[in-house]
């Protein structure tokens, strides 16, 4: 088996330069080989599905892109420039944002405060609450997210609203790459629809979206390309238009 075939036979790149490209990323935790040489490209304006069974390495790979994990070897290139992340802040400063599976919201802080968490606007020594409220309204309007009251504490909101806020927070500070780990796993039907249409709107702005999910029906709704992981390697990559549910399931389970 040739080297390329092992890494899943990447689809020939289109004309645009990838926003992020990973080459031969390897990461070991103790004796556990979490990632065994993964290549991945994220293109502008596309949604890339990262699929695979539990422990296939999807979340680990996404955390490498977002700077939470530092790979043992391999290169990360952001818009043609090779980078070395030392933490989540490095990735953030390169406009790579991540929505975590557990949302990472502060329940006791209001919607506005959560949207600006870690990026508070100041007016002299004090928080500029007025400016933050106004900007928050614009941010949510731009994503067509409707929250009745922006000064309500986040603990009072529904699961879907919380999800929307987590996504809005990541999507509103001009990200170029937006990684979402299981954004729809715990949501009701209407809420899933809202998140999916939100992904489409973000995509339309030229953002590269990486979607990690177990819900294959979502993949066929919003994604353009799927990368399938198995035991820490990328085993296949397919354009969504050229594949079907059966093939994807076979690739994930290794039953091909």
């Amino acid at each position: 088996m040739s080297e390329t075939a092992q890494r899943g036979g990447a689809i020939p790149p289109n004309s645009a330069t990838p926003l992020v490209s990973l080459r031969d990323i390897r990461l070991t935790f103790g004796s556990h080989q979490a990632l065994r040489g993964v290549d991945l490209d994220v293109m502008p304006g596309e949604c890339l599905a990262l699929l695979g069974d539990n422990a296939a390495g999807k979340s680990t790979l996404s955390k490498v892109i977002s700077g939470t994990y530092i790979p043992d070897s391999g290169t990360i290139t952001v818009q043609g420039e090779e980078v070395r992340f030392t933490g989540p802040n490095d990735a953030r400063s390169r406009n790579i944002e991540m929505v975590f599976q557990d949302l990472a919201l502060c329940d006791h802080i209001d919607v506005v405060g959560n949207l600006f968490l870690g990026r508070e606007l100041n007016k002299g020594p004090f928080l500029d609450q007025k400016a933050m409220l106004a900007r928050a309204q614009e941010m949510l309007e731009a994503l067509e997210i409707r929250i009745p009251r922006l000064t309500a504490r986040v603990e009072k909101l529904s699961g879907g609203q919380r999800q929307a806020i987590a996504i809005a927070r990541a999507a509103s500070f001009q990200p170029k790459v937006l990684i979402m780990d299981e954004p729809t796993s715990a949501l009701a039907v209407a809420e899933v629809e809202a998140v999916l249409s939100l992904i489409n709107r973000v995509k339309a702005k030229g953002v590269g979206v990486v979607l990690i999910t177990h819900r294959l029906q979502d993949v066929f709704r919003v994604c353009d390309r799927a990368a399938i992981m198995y035991e820490g390697t990328k085993v296949a990559e397919r354009m969504i238009a050229d594949t079907n549910l059966e093939e994807i399931v076979n690739l994930i389970t290794g039953g091909h």
Binding site: R92, A104, L105, C106, H108, L117, P125
Partner: peptide, 22 residues
């Protein structure tokens, strides 16, 4: 009304979230 106060609340509310936003 200060960033420090907001940080104290954030750390108490969700330490991991506060850490992740830097």
């Amino acid at each position: 009304n200060t960033r420090y106060g907001r940080q104290v609340v954030a750390v108490g509310s969700n330490l991991e979230a506060a850490r992740r936003v830097g």
